[in-house]
Structure formats: structure tokens, C-alpha cells
Design a protein around this nucleic acid. Structure first.
Lengths: 335, 335
DNA sequence: CACCGTTTCTACAACGTTGTAGGCAACGTT
DNA sequence: AACGTTGCCTACAACGTTGTAGAAACGGTG
């Protein structure tokens, strides 16, 4: 039931290479020969063996996408767009989960290049630039700010400006005691650092004090962490009138904690997030957020990878910026 | 920078095959030879070429998981567990998105077997048994009820009983006008049909009428569809005091629609879902639901695939049932 | 009609790996 | 001392594909 070029060739009465030529769309094949070969291919339901092709050509048509967690909606949505964007190039996407653990990320960065994939789109959490330094040349595109100083092509969004703008939105609505949830002490929190900087910028520009006690750390950015941080803020006695959560799942957790504390959103406390995940469009209340253009991020990443694959692998690395917009919903709507 | 067995062999002063033997853990290699080879491997940072290995052995160590949509939380969570379960076998998982489209599902079922993967775990929406009939023998495990009559191994949960039990829960709480959201007319709605059957069973057993007007169809099972269906029920004048949504995203949409209509959950209308996605643990209110053991589903699927790969490929197909439990939360809590 | 360029096709080798067959020591047994 | 057994290693072929080189057939030109 599984056939090779040889089987097709015998059936069509031509050489193996001629069948290969038909399969690959080589021009100089007589129409009647081509027809005979195609018929044989159809009859035998022949499909090329990708491993053999790869071995010979050095290309698999498979790229990998490595993300920390698939069940974080942001990454799931991103994965969907990457799969779609890659399909335009005829690529299949192999998705890898690193759990955000440095060891696993290292394995992925080096080990996944076991010649099965042509390139890698990588969203690291813990990886350092050194980890990437000694790598052989499997083309790679990095997502996000984690690894700076260009060891590879990269797609980012302007986190500082986006964070500043969403904070400004809160200020314009009249909020004065604006908390932030999601700061991180470790080196791993590159996004956290930038979003915190944007938040501080906005406060400063508006002449508001930056108050340490209003800034709550969150080691991970899941719903549970957001809920815990919000409860912490509420019980500590600081009474914020608005909260900027560094991502949407944190914000959803915060909404939950505020609900449990009997506070209304946005009347008592306004809430904004970051990422624009699907949940935030249906939560109660719906969530105001920074909406990075995930589709564009995916497209840019795939495009960078394609250029790297087809072009000069030693060319200087590039960094592209994807657009975003503010998505204002009920959680900051003025009553 | 990219090395082959041959390079390692030259460096260690042994034959290519001896290096291969070391890599594959063959026993009859003298300790000192092994050490020399391992040193050479480390120095050159050698990694085997999977394509070549596959070509020779017929195994890649890669399996595929095909799901309709990655950004449906249920599938994202499932994918995560499959990746974890497969890792125990040393397998990498290639994730494919079919969009639930029959054509794409067909391509995946036949085409993905282009010799790059060893097996396939497949959650089809639109595929028919005929589509699977003519396939060559790439081992496959089906998830869910879509394709019956055993053309391949399968992992399911008992949808009818689960649906009956969650409906009984609503009845026990005193609800009498229980709506259902998510019914589907097309053949594709195998899960819908079974869950509807369980719902009807429970009503019958409790002596309640099965009321057509309380059953709302939903072509897809996204949040937006749940919200639309709920709005439809509310404006049609039927006044349900509870709703059984056939999955959690539908339920989250329904919560949203009820909120917009000014109705309280669970006081005015109780809501239950199906799937136990993460969102439902943090929604407002938190969502009562049927919680299939996704981890177990993933483990069973991987196990079936492993048996098929290592064992008799012609053996009769098996069907395993995964456990589930009811997860009762605020959306049905008695006041 | 000899010549040349193009079209069409074929044979062969190679990609990197591992299974098979077999060789050479070293050892224990008769 | 001759023999078989075991341990360790090597040479070779093969997996299915495509690039290269070149042969054969064809068409047009001088």
C-alpha cells in the first residue's frame, strides 16, 4: 500500500528520475509521458517520502514554533496564526512546549535542530543570549523582548509605548491611584520590565507619584496569580481606583478577586490588561486591553524565517515591530 | 558546524558503525572505546540526523496531533497533555489544525502520513468513516465520537451518562425549565447528539417534558455562538430557569448574554457547561461543568498509539473510555 | 545532408543512517 | 593444541529521493 518512485516508474514504463521530474514540476517532460506518470501516481496513490527528500535536499518543509505553554490563550492564538501564515509557504508547523524552563528552552534551541526542521520561531521566557551564542545556523526568529542584542531575527511590539498609552487612558478617565500587577524581579521578566517602565512614564508625565506599594509582583502570569496579587493589594490597605495588569489572564484573575471582594468594575476599580485574548471579549465585564496584532506578528515571523531560509544566512539580523491598538471595553467604561 | 557520524568516527578513530552503536546504546562496545566516542560526540556537538534515521529505520519519533482549533481552550489544554504524555515515550508532537473542515481533515488523515510521522492522534469534526476507509496503515487514534464503528483505535468519554448526570444535578436543585444550548442538525454533531440524548434521558427520568423550544442549536461552539443562542432563548419568551450548554465556551457566552439581560446566575438562571476549561474556574460566576479527565484521555491515546506502533498493526481496534467527574461551582450553587 | 541546439529522458551517485554478515582476538573447554 | 564461543569491531548495502552528467531523439539552419 505504500509506494515509491520506483513502483510508479515501473507502472508508467519510465525511469525513476522522470517520475521525480513530474512530481517536481520539471518542464521538459512530454505531455503524454507526464500524463502516463500522473495516471500511475494516481492509481498507486503515491506520496513522496519527506524524510528521503529532506535527506537529499536538506529541506523538510517543516518549521517549529516553541512557546512556553499552549494553554495560555495568547500563545494558542498566536500558534493558530503562525500555522496559517506558514501554510502560505507550504510549511507544516511543529509546535513545542517549553514550559518556560530554561533547560527545556535550551534543548529546543539546540536539540530540535536535529535536522527535522528547517527553522524555528521561538518565544523564550528564560533563555539567555549566551544560550543562543554557540548554536549552529538553524534559522531562528525570536518573539518578544526576552533575548536582546540580536543573536537572531526578532519580532517585537513597542511594549513601553503601549503600556504608557493604556495607563494614560486610565489617567484620562480620572483615575489617580493606579496599581500595576505583574512586575517581576528576575531577569526573565523582560516584558514585565518594559511594561512597568511604560506605566511609570505615564504616571510621571501626568505628575502622579510612582508608589511602590501599588506595584504587585506576579511570578507567573496566570489567572490564579492575578487573583492572588489583587487580593494582596486589597488586603494591604492601599486602595487603588484602577489596575493595569501586565497581561489579560492576570486581569481576568484580578476581576475575579475584585468580584469576590464585592467591588464593582469599573465603578469602584477600573481594570486593563494586555494581549487581547478571546476571553476578554466575553468576560464580565469585558476587558479593556492592549491588542497586539497577533496575525501580523505571526506573518512577520514567518516572513523573516522565509528570508533567512532562502537568502543569506549570514546577513545581519533584523528586528521588526508589529502594530498594536488599544481595545477599550467595559472594564474601563465611564459609567 | 554540522557533523555526521563519519566526522565523529574519524575523530575517535573508529568505524562509522561503532559510533552508531554507541549512539544507540549497543552493549558490546569496550568502555574505553565508548568513552573515546562519547568524547568526540561531545566535542563536535554531534546530533543524529532524524531524517536519515527515519529513512533507514522507518521511525521518526514524531507523532502528530490534529485538532480543529488551537485557540479553543479545550483543545489547547488537551494538546498540552498529549505533548507531556508523548514525551514519556521520547516522542515529539507535531500539532496540526484542521479548522474542522472535512477537506483539511482528509488531507491530514491521508497526507500527513507522508512518512514524516509515526502515528496520528486525531480529533475529527467533519470526517466520515469512509474518508478513513481507504487509508494505508499509518497508526491512528481517534478522539471523540465523530467516527464510530471502529476504523481505528479510539478514546471517548461516556457523553450520554455525563450529560444525564449534569442535567440531573440541575433537576435536583429544583430547576424545571431547563434549556439546552448546542444542538446540531448536521451529521458532524456527534457529541451534540449524545449530549442531547443524555439531557433528554434525565428529563424523562424526572418526569419532565422535553420541550423543543428550550433546545437552541449552535453551529459552532464558540463563546459568540453561546451568547447568540442565549439571547435567542431570552427574546423568544421561553423562560428557562437553567441552561445546559454542551461545552464551556458556549456557557461562557451564555453567562455573558444573561449578564447583559440583567439576569443573575445562578439565582435567576443556573448554567452548566462541559469540558472544564481553565476560564470556567475564574469566570464570574465560576462555572459548573462536566470535567473530562483530559490528562487521562491524552495518556490513553498515546498508549494506544504506542501499542499500535510496537505491536500488531492488524489487531482489532480498541475503544477506551476515559473518566470524568462533575465540577460544581457558583453557576449552580444554591443561594 | 551535415551540423548544432534543444528537448526528453536515463544512469549513477550521494544525502546520513543502521541492519547484516563477517573478521579477528581473547577466552574457556576438550 | 585444536576447537568453539563470545566480545568487539568493520565493511558493505540499503532506505527513497534528487542533482549531475550525459545519451538519444528531434527540429531547424546553412
Amino acid at each position: 500500500m505504500r509506494h515509491r518512485l520506483k513502483d510508479v516508474a515501473e507502472r508508467a514504463g519510465v525511469s525513476v528520475k522522470t517520475v521525480s521530474n513530474v512530481v517536481n514540476g520539471y518542464v521538459h517532460v512530454r505531455p503524454d509521458t507526464r500524463a502516463r506518470v500522473e495516471e500511475a501516481i494516481a492509481e498507486l496513490n503515491y506520496r513522496p517520502n519527506l524524510s528521503a527528500r529532506h535527506l537529499r535536499k536538506g529541506r523538510t518543509g517543516v518549521i517549529a514554533l516553541a512557546v512556553p505553554e499552549l494553554d495560555i490563550p495568547y500563545f494558542a492564538e498566536l500558534a493558530r496564526y503562525v500555522v496559517t501564515a506558514a501554510a502560505a509557504y507550504g510549511w507544516t508547523v511543529l509546535i513545542d512546549q517549553t514550559g518556560g524552563r530554561r533547560e527545556q528552552e535550551r534543548v529546543v534551541a539546540s536539540g530540535i535542530t536535529d535536522h527535522l526542521i528547517d527553522g524555528l520561531i521561538f518565544s523564550p521566557l528564560a533563555l539567555t543570549a549566551e544560550d543562543l551564542a554557540g548554536l549552529d545556523g538553524t534559522p531562528m526568529v525570536l518573539l518578544g523582548e526576552r533575548v536582546e542584542h540580536g543573536p537572531a531575527d526578532r519580532v517585537v511590539i513597542d511594549n513601553v509605548t503601549a503600556a504608557r498609552q493604556i495607563t494614560e487612558h486610565l489617567i484620562e478617565l480620572g483615575h489617580r491611584r493606579i496599581a500595576a500587577i505583574g512586575s517581576q524581579r528576575t531577569d526573565e521578566g523582560a516584558s514585565a520590565r518594559l511594561r512597568l517602565a511604560g506605566y511609570a512614564d505615564a504616571l510621571r508625565a501626568a505628575g502622579l507619584d510612582y508608589d511602590e506599594t501599588l506595584v504587585a509582583p506576579a511570578s507567573a502570569w496566570h489567572r490564579a496569580d492575578g487573583a492572588a496579587a489583587m487580593r494582596g493589594l486589597l488586603t494591604s490597605g492601599v486602595r487603588p481606583d484602577a489596575v493595569f495588569c501586565f497581561n489579560d489572564t492576570l486581569a481576568l484573575g484580578a476581576l475575579r478577586a475584585l468580584h469576590e471582594a464585592g467591588l464593582r468594575v469599573p465603578e469602584d476599580v477600573a481594570v486593563v490588561g494586555f494581549d487581547d485574548i478571546e476571553d476578554g471579549r466575553f468576560s464580565i465585564p469585558t476587558l479593556s486591553t492592549v491588542a497586539p496584532d497577533k496575525e501580523r506578528i505571526a506573518e512577520l515571523a514567518v516572513e523573516l524565517l522565509a528570508n533567512r531560509l532562502d537568502g543569506d544566512r549570514a546577513a545581519p539580523t533584523r528586528e521588526l515591530s508589529a502594530p498594536y491598538r488599544l481595545e477599550l471595553r467595559e472594564s474601563t467604561r465611564t459609567p
